[in-house]
Design a protein around this nucleic acid. Structure first.
Length: 552
RNA sequence: UGGGAUGUAGUGUAACGGUAGCACCACAGAUUCUGAUUCUGUUUGUCUGGGUUCGAAUCCUAGCAUCCCAACCA
């Protein structure tokens, strides 16, 4: 390759560190808190952390940041592991911040011994008030000058369960006038009489994020601890604790998180959508969760490609959903089997075709010849798509219309001779005549038509439920709109087609299979399918230049 | 109004003192038994003002804009 892809700023840092001999190999980590499902934004972080280690010959740990027992749950631990594996990554070790609770407690004692931490009896309101504001310095707590011995005793009593939640906290003693709010004696331990998903009831004091994350990094010898931009102010505290504790110096680097159009990315908002029933669970195909995308039919490869294309930098970004969809279609176009399905049926009768006759026609399974062909039944009565007929054709229309000719995919050219309407004016039946010499792959008719439409043989059609998913929100950035973001949910984000007709080959569809329903989009079998009820999800539509033309 | 981070086409992302490039989107055309795919082409950009330099997106300087920080969340 003459043109080398340029490095992102983290790759540059890693290469410089390696070149300078700072490390012989790198260690990264992916540190989710098990209090929700992973979303597409996390996949950026996953691809980055695992990708860096892979590229530079290092390793990546999966470490659950489980320091807040009240919001965490093993259900989330399992889903997170499933999602990472599905994305195609393997962690070196599965670890938990809670594995280090004993060590972390010792670190806190060390800090107290050095006179760098103290127990504060103030209420949370008092602590907040004394903290000052970004423009005014804070004031020392009256408990700030307690002796080392007293602090040791008090912290030990906290651990022993002598106090109630919120009665006391342990704070680092730094500087109440610091310009960085996080350095104004941050709380590093709090009391929570809560059951922890792994340590059970062993502890009633739990370390705060700042006193767990960096220390866990250090314990694991993480060389490059990569997090998102909002943690920039935390880096000063991260470094301070490592220095005072005299432990392995991990370094924190920050990149801009992924934001994407037509969705929300905060766990709090996603949790609301789930809890308040706006979607059917974390893996609802409308959710931007990894499990949601998976269920909708996205491939892991397309998500990895997307993460590669969006790049890594430090400026806020807002990625077009269309880029993700582009990556998806690019992959699906290569692998999806082409089949025919009619979603909004209207009956078509070929008046000059022999009654009771059925032909088996060959049709290609995909653009690549290696995908082979299959046979599909064809006879006198077919379903076609209602929108493929126009009584009064629009400009540039080249599908069916009175007197117009069109090809039935892999079959014959037909001409529309008549149509029947019901009392409400809805078309109920189309009458066409076919041209016997125009059979696909053996066309001697000499007729060429502009349009080709798909169809399904009525007698052998399979019935299925098809879930047509669209974007969850009707505005690009629901989080930035005035009012509740839920007011901007797209009312048509899910439209269920109770009875669609499919060609018989779909009877053997499996969950992992990807299909293109010709001219309609990419679809996959949903896990709700049963032996007598097929359920398909629309993964994504095909690009549709006709609808643009029609709207002109 | 304290501190920190960031400003390159509509959206992302390169260019590391020497021709502002790539992708998505949009638009136009060709091909097509999927109005898909594929192929061709087009529009649009260095936050602003000064300065240094033969030459500045890049260096200096003064502004401006956006985001983050005052949970016993992470």
């Amino acid at each position: 390759m003459s043109e080398e892809k340029s490095l992102n700023f983290l790759e540059e840092i890693v290469e410089a560190d390696l070149a300078a001999g700072k490390y012989s190999s790198i260690v990264t980590r992916f540190p989710p808190e098990p209090n929700g499902y992973l979303h597409i934004g996390h996949s950026k972080s996953i691809c980055l952390n695992f990708g860096l280690a892979k590229k530079y010959g290092g390793k990546t740990n999966l470490r659950f940041d489980d320091t807040n027992p009240v919001t965490e749950d093993t259900e989330y631990v399992e889903s997170i592991k499933d999602d990472i594996r599905w994305l195609g990554f393997n962690w070196a070790e599965e670890l938990y911040a809670s594995d280090y609770f004993d060590k972390l407690y010792e670190y806190a004692v060390t800090l107290i011994r050095k006179g760098l931490a103290y127990v504060d009896d103030s209420t949370s309101e008092e602590i907040a008030t004394l903290k000052g504001t970004p423009t005014e310095p804070g004031k020392d707590s009256v408990y700030r000058s307690r002796s080392v011995e007293e602090n040791l005793q008090l912290f030990s009593d906290m651990k022993a369960g002598k106090y109630k939640d919120g009665e006391k906290v342990l704070r680092a003693k730094i500087d109440m006038a610091h310009t960085n709010m996080l350095m104004r004696d941050p709380i590093i331990y709090r009391i929570k009489h809560a059951h922890h998903h792994r340590t059970g009831d062993k502890w009633c004091v739990y370390p705060m994020y700042d006193f767990a994350h960096g220390q866990s990094d250090s314990i694991e010898n993480i060389t490059h601890s990569i997090c998102t931009l909002e943690f920039i102010p935390h880096r000063e505290l991260y470094d301070w604790l490592i220095e005072k504790l005299e432990i392995f110096p991990s370094h924190q680097y920050e990149f801009a998180r992924l934001n994407m159009t037509y969705t929300v990315m905060s766990k709090r908002k996603l949790l609301q959508l789930v809890n308040e029933g706006f979607v059917n669970g974390w893996d609802d195909p409308r959710m931007p969760t990894i499990s949601g995308f998976r269920r909708k039919g996205y491939t892991a490869e397309s998500i990895r490609t997307f993460c590669d294309k969006i790049g890594v930098a430090k400026r806020e970004n807002f990625i077009d959903l269309s880029l993700l969809e582009f990556c998806l279609r690019e992959h699906l176009n290569k692998i999806a089997k082409r089949v025919m399905a009619v979603l909004d049926p209207v009956k078509l009768v070929i008046t000059n075709y022999e009654d009771g006759k059925t032909e088996m026609l060959n049709s290609e399974n995909g653009p690549d010849e290696s995908m082979g062909t299959r046979t599909i039944p064809f006879s006198k009565e077919l379903w076609i798509e209602r929108e493929d007929f126009m009584e009064v054709p629009a400009k540039k229309w080249f599908r069916l219309a009175p007197g117009a000719m069109v090809r039935l995919k892999s079959a014959y050219i037909i001409k529309c001779d008549a149509f029947i309407k019901d009392v409400n004016g809805n078309i109920t039946e189309l009458h066409c005549s076919y041209i016997p010499e125009s059979k696909s792959s053996n066309d001697t008719s000499g007729i060429s038509v502009k349009g080709t439409i798909h169809w399904v043989n009525i007698a052998t059609a399979l019935e299925a439920e098809v879930r047509m998913y669209d974007r969850l929100f009707k505005v690009e950035n629901p989080a930035s709109e005035e009012g509740d973001f839920k007011d901007f949910i797209n009312p048509h984000s899910l439209e269920i087609i109770q009875k669609a007709y499919l060609e018989p080959s779909l009877a053997t569809a499996a969950i992992e299979d990807r299909y293109q329903f010709i001219r309609k989009g990419y679809f996959c079998l949903d896990k709700d399918s049963t032996a007598n009820q097929l359920v398909f999800n629309r993964t994504v539509t095909l690009k549709d230049t006709w609808s643009k033309e029609a709207n002109k």
